[in-house]
């Protein structure tokens, strides 16, 4: 986890907001480093984590997790981490092999129009079964992490189906079980008439539902080796208040973490 990001968001593994829906999005940049942050954050906090890794293999997250100080393999063995390896399981479903008929959670691959009900059931069952710690304690509040949700659009699932899925996940995880949700969505370029089905529509729908939106983009002035991009933090309290503060930070990702600084205060500049 990144200590500077914890300071910005005012949270630590010992005390963080529950029932939080955090949306991480990017546009022509890569925000997956934030997923690694949240994965190590919640594992350190002792929460039960359900991770839908739809675009990378388990060993990728494991290797990065080692550098950030958590062992994913151990967490998986202990039952703290439930990891869905989307890539590995999907080949069977796409090629329609008999052995994969049993996997209901990947039903969206076999028939993309069907929706994500099967995937939701998988999520629900994995957070409800509360296996115990070694010393008899149960894990902390459940957390759902998804990397990344917009790849489902490439597989033919509609935006509406994905928004329904996230609504159900929010209802179960955040409202009922008082847990958290972190979802990564990768957006496309902004277009003039942007009301068509696409990742931008999906992102807008999710922003309506979320409590905290982190949006990562490249610098508007171009490529820079020392500043990898800018991140906009948008605190959205649920519903009524008009004032939803937004702040922008610059960041640089390095081997063992990421550093965040206010605009114009990069060490390369000062």
């Amino acid at each position: 986890m990144f200590p500077e990001l914890n300071n910005i968001l005012n949270s630590t593994p010992d005390s963080f907001k529950s029932s939080d829906f955090i949306l991480v999005s990017d546009r022509q940049a890569d925000a997956s480093f934030l997923i690694h942050h949240y994965l190590s954050f919640y594992l350190r906090a002792g929460c039960k984590v359900c991770f839908l890794g739809l675009v990378q293999s388990f060993s990728h997250y494991s290797a990065v997790g080692q550098r950030l100080g958590v062992s994913l393999a151990q967490a998986r063995e202990k039952g703290q981490l439930v990891f869905l390896e989307g890539l590995k399981d999907s080949i069977g479903a796409i090629l329609q092999e008999e052995s994969s008929q049993g996997t209901q959670h990947l039903s969206y691959l076999r028939s993309p129009g069907a929706g994500l009900k099967g995937l939701f059931r998988f999520v629900e069952s994995s957070v409800r079964q509360n296996g115990d710690h070694d010393d008899g304690e149960s894990w902390g509040p459940p957390v759902l992490l998804i990397d990344d949700l917009s790849v489902l659009l490439s597989l033919g699932v509609t935006v509406g189906a994905i928004l329904d899925f996230t609504l159900y996940c929010q209802a179960t995880m955040c409202t009922e079980l008082q847990g958290n949700m972190v979802i990564l969505v990768r957006c496309e370029e902004e277009d003039a008439d942007d009301d068509e089905e696409g990742a931008n529509l999906l992102q807008r729908g999710l922003v309506h539902q979320c409590n905290l939106a982190l949006h990562v983009e490249g610098l508007p002035t171009g490529y820079c080796r020392d500043i990898h991009g800018q991140m906009q933090v948008w605190w959205r309290q649920s519903g009524e208040t008009m004032y939803n503060p937004r702040k922008t930070f610059h960041f640089k990702v390095h081997d063992k973490g990421a550093s965040f600084f206010a605009r114009g205060t990069s060490s390369a500049v000062l």
Binding site: R204, V207, H208, R236, G239, E240, T241, M242
Partner: peptide, 11 residues
């Protein structure tokens, strides 16, 4: 819209 929520007025 995303920029300003209407649930407050609804309530």
């Amino acid at each position: 819209t995303v920029k300003c929520t209407g649930r407050g007025i609804l309530k």
